[in-house]
Nucleic acid binder design. Sequence first.
DNA 1: GGGTCATTTGGTCAAGTGGCAAAATATACG
DNA 2: CGTATATTTTGCCACTTGACCAAATGACCC
Lengths: 100, 100
Amino acid sequence: MTAQKDIRMKARAEIFKALGHPARLAMVVALGDGELCVCELQEIVGSDMSTVSKHLTVLRHAGLVDADKRGKQMFYALRLRCAVEFLHCVDRALEERSQS
Amino acid sequence: MTAQKDIRMKARAEIFKALGHPARLAMVVALGDGELCVCELQEIVGSDMSTVSKHLTVLRHAGLVDADKRGKQMFYALRLRCAVEFLHCVDRALEERSQS
DNA sequence: GGGTCATTTGGTCAAGTGGCAAAATATACG
DNA sequence: CGTATATTTTGCCACTTGACCAAATGACCC
């Protein structure tokens, strides 16, 4: 793998890595229906808020979500919408597998 | 997160985790053009063959690729083709980011 | 069977990740 | 200003991951 190609692959892999955790994936799915604040996301995933916040940092760093502070609350919104479409394809594959 | 939803998210996350490594991603991209044997994949990613083999185990376990032994060689083929499409969307997002 | 080639498996080690709890920061409100 | 609320940061620990080497497996060839 050339150095340039490796850098490219690393950048791409960062996005997949960010999506490679159940809690982060659940948050991305939830954000597919519109922006949510951290406290709402915490209820969805059910872990400590500090943990949720760290996960959100990962998603933000990967460019998957945008953050917007309004008052005391921080609202997160999904940026890479095609992730939701890909999830549908993933779900179809998982269903096929569970049937066979 | 309910227990059932958690299981579902874990299954989905496994697929993203499998794609969340530069070498594995490079292999998936290469396999997008047709099946390849381990030795060919090794040339593409450039690491030790045992390392490549372990990465392939991860991809196979996640259901992303199929393995087929013919003679001395093991051929791998891409199973989840929509991964390639999603990568195009990811690339567009990465380009937008690098421009701004 | 013995030799060789392609691949996988097991061992070991350094580095990275995830989770919780406590402390820090930021913002509104009286 | 002091207090309450929402979120982030830091520290620490257990666990997982990825890389390489060496050894094992499996398939072909003589």
